[in-house]
Amino acid sequence: MRYATTALRCWLTAAALLLALCCPLPVFAARAGAVLPVTVRTEGAATDAACVVSITPLDAAPAPAQASLTIQGSGTAYFTGFAFDAPGDYRYTVTQAGSGRPHMTCDTHSYTVTVRVTGCPDGGLNTELWAVRSGETAKADSVKFTNRYDPPAEEAKTTVARPTKDTAALPQTADGFPLEALLAVFCAGVVGFGTAWTKRR
Rank of each mutant, 00 (worst) to 15 (best):
T137Q: 12
T127L: 06
V35P: 00
W130Q: 04
V113K: 02
G75S: 11
M1N: 10
S110L: 05
A34G: 07
A168R: 15
W130P: 01
L170S: 11
V52R: 15
S68K: 03
L129D: 07
C23P: 00
A60W: 01
G123I: 05
T108H: 08
Y3T: 13
D59S: 12
V35Y: 02
D85P: 00
L129Y: 12
F84A: 08
T108W: 01
T114H: 02
Q66H: 02
S134M: 04
P163E: 06
Y90H: 05
R9G: 15
A153H: 04
C51K: 08
A46Q: 12
V52Y: 01
T137A: 11
E155L: 11
K144T: 15
C106R: 02
P121D: 15
N126L: 06
P152D: 09
T93N: 10
T95R: 15
A161L: 14
V113M: 02
K199F: 14
R116K: 14
S54D: 12
Q72P: 00
T70P: 01
T39A: 12
P178N: 12
D166A: 14
E128C: 01
G75W: 07
F145P: 03
A181Q: 14
Q66F: 02
T39H: 04
A131Q: 07
P24A: 08
G189V: 08
T164M: 05
F84E: 07
K139Y: 13
Y92C: 07
V160P: 00
T118V: 09
D107T: 09
A14W: 03
R116Q: 14
A15G: 05
C187F: 15
L21H: 06
R133M: 10
T159F: 11
Y111R: 04
T42L: 14
G100Q: 08
W11V: 13
K139P: 00
K199Q: 13
P163Y: 07
P121G: 06
E136S: 13
V27G: 00
N147G: 01
A181L: 15
A77T: 03
V191W: 08
N126M: 05
H103E: 10
A138N: 07
A188N: 11
F145R: 12
A67I: 01
N147E: 06
G176Y: 15
F193I: 07
T5N: 10
I71V: 12
C10R: 10
V35M: 08
A29G: 11
P26N: 02
R116H: 15
A181S: 13
M1K: 10
T105P: 00
K144R: 15
A140K: 06
Q96H: 00
M104C: 10
V113N: 01
P87L: 05
L17T: 07
V185S: 12
E43S: 13
A14Y: 04
G33W: 11
D122N: 12
F84N: 07
A181F: 09
T114D: 01
Q172D: 11
R116C: 06
T105G: 05
L12H: 03
F193P: 00
W11I: 10
D141M: 07
T159S: 09
N147P: 03
T13N: 06
A60I: 00
R91A: 14
A4W: 10
R41V: 15
T195K: 05
D122T: 03
Q72V: 09
D85I: 00
R133Q: 14
V190S: 02
T198Y: 15
T80N: 05
H103Y: 14
S142I: 03
T42M: 10
D166F: 11
Y78R: 10
